[in-house]
Design a protein around this nucleic acid. Sequence first.
DNA 1: CTGTTAGCGCATTCAG
DNA 2: CTGAATGCGCTAACAG
Lengths: 359, 359
Amino acid sequence: MVSPEPAATTGTVTRVTLADVAALAGVSASTASLAFSGSGPVSDATRERVLAAASELGYAGPDPRARSLRRGRSGIVGVVLEERVRAAFLDPVKIQTLDGLTEGIAPLGAGLLLFTDSGDPDAPVSLDTAPVDAVVLIGCSPKFFRQVEALQRRGIPLVAIEGAPGGDIPEITIDNREATRLGAEHVRSLGHTDVATVTLPFEPTRTRGELTPEMEAGATVDTAVERLRGARDVFPDIRVGVAGASSIEEGLEAARLLLADAATRPTAIIAQSDLLAAGVIQAAEELGLQVPRDLSVIGFDGIRVDGLQHDLTTLVQPSVAKGRAAGEAIVRMLSGEAASGTDFTSTLHVGDTTAPPRA
Amino acid sequence: MVSPEPAATTGTVTRVTLADVAALAGVSASTASLAFSGSGPVSDATRERVLAAASELGYAGPDPRARSLRRGRSGIVGVVLEERVRAAFLDPVKIQTLDGLTEGIAPLGAGLLLFTDSGDPDAPVSLDTAPVDAVVLIGCSPKFFRQVEALQRRGIPLVAIEGAPGGDIPEITIDNREATRLGAEHVRSLGHTDVATVTLPFEPTRTRGELTPEMEAGATVDTAVERLRGARDVFPDIRVGVAGASSIEEGLEAARLLLADAATRPTAIIAQSDLLAAGVIQAAEELGLQVPRDLSVIGFDGIRVDGLQHDLTTLVQPSVAKGRAAGEAIVRMLSGEAASGTDFTSTLHVGDTTAPPRA
DNA sequence: CTGTTAGCGCATTCAG
DNA sequence: CTGAATGCGCTAACAG
């Protein structure tokens, strides 16, 4: 057995190739290759000789770049998030989706290549120059059309989660409108008639405040629009407060506005996310209102809001499953099968934040 | 001008190469290459001809795999997190660090390749078979030594953030012990003598409860150990509650234990993270204790805890800067310069959660 | 300004 | 079971 010591301590980073190893082992390059990949018929004696030569030379295995050119696969799946890292990962649903995605592509043994906004406008989002085997778009705008087209031409499988890029790209979606309607119906069935809603932003610039017709017309975020539709299916004239993001802070702000005037105060608020709902609850508590006695609150997502003491009534969406489905679609497409999208269903979880209105 | 239409609608994904484009344009492959990279001297007429040929054939640009073999660079930086995505991104500090890292490597125009635990024990964490130009280790254990060694042999620049892999790998660290000592001194200077601390987990299995000598002996998480040392520098006999993770929930649990007995109740708690501190505050409020009147609380990190109404007294660590520094070190190393680590300093932010003990 | 030549490092034919 | 030859698709030198 050759000691690996010299290799480890050799400061010189001379490029050692498979050919070098083969030469030292006294075999051909192809044999050496087989010895490494383990996939071919190689005698144990030969393999050992190759491995010994490798460790003597400090050969670290096949060069991934050459390997991926030769095999036509890089073992990398791209994920496009179109925000700054800190913004994207503020959203628990995205994190869970990403988690599901890692699960889904696990059989590939592939890594996830993150494409996010670096803040530097000059830095090219080199989505179309990256060695990816497939790409998952998460909540992306049409901004990427050019690059997406290029990927398609190259035959790279694409899947979209929430945010329809069109074409024949499989989409993973949920029933935003129907689910919200379900929640709204729950609220109505409890006897509420005076209801307001706190929505997610309607466009990337994240204008907040009471919803104006212009904002609604310029909406680009389908999720917000669809969920609002669902609420309106039940409460057509619902008052709408728009948050600047999905966070407790923003929910608090929006709810302060909606709850400010005791005379026009709603008895229930439908929040478009659990974080917003947590903020709404805080706003209520600030005003000395008790949830659910004085105000019913319903959320969306079904995440566990860290630190929230209530069992939030909410629409539980399968965020992890969404990611996993995307991953599985990718796996299928990479093995040549066709894949179609999936539309998931959310379920109503009735917790302790909704109750009949007082008197 | 040739219409791009046919290319876009062509369903067949025939592999179009640069050579094909060059042939159609009636130029050599190298000229066509220059026309694409834009880096060489090419006449406008020729360039246009090449581009026209490309769009006619539906050529989507150079193949990234071939390009990276030829250039010896893939434009990818690996990030190792050694947890599940959902666990890693629960930690705001890691998110900010990652955000800083994207900033830091922006000049590279490179993407971040995430290496996390997929949950599937069979899936190889193929860190050493991935086409990365450099790798950043974030809070990693010795578990990766083998792979790290392989990367080093291959001459791939490595940087570690929090979690010393040893060797000559540059490390980005903060003054965990000194900073905590500073915070503890602040608490003592207010007059507190009866102080407890809530720590981060001491090892990956995340055992929680009162600290036992065995747990302390088996500690593998430097951050927790160092911060505890800092607290002991000021309060040698401090009571220690160990949390199972950095979250509000865990802080709440740990603090409930520490505050349970009114007779032995501390007047101040030093939490090893802001999330834990938020949980401690919740526990206090549950018991009808007012912060800071009845209990002083100090955190660590300096993140904005979403939904926390207090201005938390805490040790503000430069999490974004840490990531950026790592990124910059990578950039330097890739351009051949040597890079050394950086040790950052945290600063005490005195908010409204610390005050002298009552009477 | 453009064409010719020569590999990058490996994995896969196909013979032996 | 092993070796020799071939090219993945591109770009960097160098001539012209």
